[in-house]
């Protein structure tokens, strides 16, 4: 048994090749494979391989699982009575056909390769021809325009950079802590203030408004002030409550600094 299979196994290119061999040996119709018989013989080969301590490529095992799966599906009675029930063997047959074509064309290529290519070719010339010469026509005014364009672009880029630096510097000027302190001061002066006037008026930028808004929210949350707004997009009136003390918000969380 062991000796019988020994030499043959080496020649199979893969599970498809082995299956083909079995189908041909049993003179089976490719379109009507007797799965049960083929599976049995296929597994016999694998067991033989195993007993010879040969490494079985995982592809062979996958195919064994596929065959068993198909076999079990063939045994089950079909539930639906539709005519176009897919044969569980279909996918396998398609793959076998494609492999058969591949094997046949490989054989053709092998034959052609043996007889063709009886030519000798020269090696690519070692002559250094250098790079192709090119002439560029440039009018003086084109050159000048280009220069102006480059200057303008570089100035614009420099300005852009400068603006970015400004933003970084300004960014540090606004903190919620500052705004809270300012609010406390204002509320002790006036008792009631307008958010729009103080934080969105002239000279205020977006950061003023945002930090200002965050600080009135914080005040309302800690019940130190009451907020009133008549309608959407209307001014917000901030009014201090009795709980507000003059030294409030001197020690704020890190987040507000």
């Amino acid at each position: 048994m062991e000796v019988k299979c020994d030499l043959k196994l080496e020649n199979f290119q893969g599970p498809f090749d082995l299956l083909f061999h079995l189908i041909e040996k049993n003179e089976m119709d490719l379109y009507d494979i007797q799965i049960s018989e083929i599976t049995e013989q296929y597994l016999e080969y694998l067991f033989a391989m195993e007993s010879l301590n040969m490494d079985i490529a995982s592809e062979f095992l996958v195919m064994a699982a596929t065959l068993l799966h198909i076999k079990s599906r063939m045994l089950l009675p079909t539930v639906s009575e539709e005519e176009d029930e897919i044969d569980p063997r279909e996918q396998l047959v398609l793959q076998l056909l494609e492999y058969k074509r591949c094997k046949a064309s490989a054989g053709l290529l092998k034959d052609i390769h043996a007889t063709a290519g009886l030519n000798f070719y020269r090696k690519p010339s070692s002559e250094d021809f250098g790079k192709t010469e090119r002439t560029y026509s440039l009018a003086p005014n084109v050159l000048r325009d280009m220069y102006v364009l480059i200057c303008e672009r570089s100035i614009a880029r420099k300005n852009l950079g400068a603006r970015k630096v400004n933003n970084i510097l300004r960014h540090e000027k606004y903190t919620v802590e500052q705004k809270l302190r300012k609010l406390v001061k204002l509320l002790f002066e006036k008792e009631e203030i307008s958010f729009f006037e103080e934080f969105m008026g002239k000279g205020a930028n977006r950061l003023d408004s945002i930090t200002g808004f965050l600080s009135i929210l914080e005040m309302a949350r800690s019940r130190k002030a009451k907020l009133r707004q008549r309608g959407i997009f209307e001014d917000i009136i901030v009014r201090r409550t009795e709980q507000l003390k003059e030294d409030d918000f001197t020690d704020v969380p890190e987040l507000y600094k």
């Binding site: 599970p15 498809f16 592809e59 492999y99 591949c102 290529l109």
Partner: peptide, 22 residues
């Protein structure tokens, strides 16, 4: 080579799906 030439071009996955082996 046959899979690649007969398909004009092919990926490794295509070759392996036809041949069934790595």
């Amino acid at each position: 080579l046959a899979v690649i030439a007969y398909n004009t071009e092919a990926t490794r996955a295509k070759v392996e799906s036809v041949r069934g082996v790595n």
